[in-house]
Design a protein around this nucleic acid. Structure first.
Lengths: 141, 141
DNA sequence: CTAGAAGTTCAAGCTGACTTTAGGTCAAGC
DNA sequence: GCTTGACCTAAAGTCAGCTTGAACTTCTAG
């Protein structure tokens, strides 16, 4: 399979696949006259990477946990450790988002004379403090 | 108040405040011998910006909605429109995160022989499709 | 045989929200 | 008067995860 087909079958861009190879997420496949030729299981591997990426793992993390790990290897303790850390992160995201949502809904309904008053009324500064103390990196899942 | 004090009182870095001024979020204050001197209400304005930022609005959005808007102006229809759009986004984030969390929790508990099998068993490909079709930008709130 | 689609490399560019650096000016305390 | 720390500007650097561009080669259909 050439890179274009792999791209088509995984929904990625060919350049993304080359990039994954470049950063060590994907082993360099064998080549026919300079062009990459992938075995069928590459599709699976790439999908696994996509999956982990969708799960919120960074490529760096995925690299660590896929390093030397074959797709048919058991779910190891390292994976589990990372999953544990991620669960904490995701929980924080959920809490934060729920709070955010209720604040936004208030903003929609409210009859406050000004943004400033609205913010005060909600004692948002307190919310803000809580959000901040959570040290949730803005926008990060 | 000099920039350092404003920074201290808002929890921001002085360079971030200069940056906000640069991108038009903050009006240029009057100067004493070249140095910025802020009135007390600047603290409030900066906190409002932080608040919106924490709420997941981009600086570009905040700029639009603060453009010509005084802190004591009523919460206008433009704010509300943006809030509506944001609520949709935040809802998606919540759904996605909840799904993510349960997947991760499964990963912790599971006895699947391999990641591949584990992923199959959860019919994650289906989840993946759903996640993707939501067109949620990865990692974005 | 030839056009053009698809492959290659390497380097640079993009987004967002800042931070850092370099090189200078100003203010306050001793 | 001198030192030290806070301030100034402009430009470049940072992070992730790619994408794009330039310049070139290889494959495939007609």
């Amino acid at each position: 399979m050439k890179i274009g087909e792999l791209a088509g079958r995984t929904g990625l861009n060919a350049s993304a696949i080359r990039y994954y190879e470049q950063v060590g997420l994907l082993a360099a496949p064998h080549r026919a006259s300079g062009q990459r030729r992938y075995a069928d299981d590459a599709v699976h591997r790439v999908r696994l990477i996509c999956f982990a990426s969708e799960m919120g793992f960074t490529l760096g993390e995925i690299k660590i946990f896929l390093g030397g790990l074959r797709d048919d290897a058991p779910v190891g303790p390292r994976w589990k450790k990372l999953a544990e850390r991620k669960i904490v992160e995701v929980k924080r995201t959920i809490e934060r988002s729920v709070r955010l949502k209720s604040l936004l809904e208030h903003l929609l309904r409210c009859h406050c004379a000004s943004l400033a008053i609205c913010v005060e009324r909600l004692s948002l500064s307190e919310n803000l403090k809580r959000i901040r103390s959570g040290k949730v990196v803005k926008g990060k899942i």
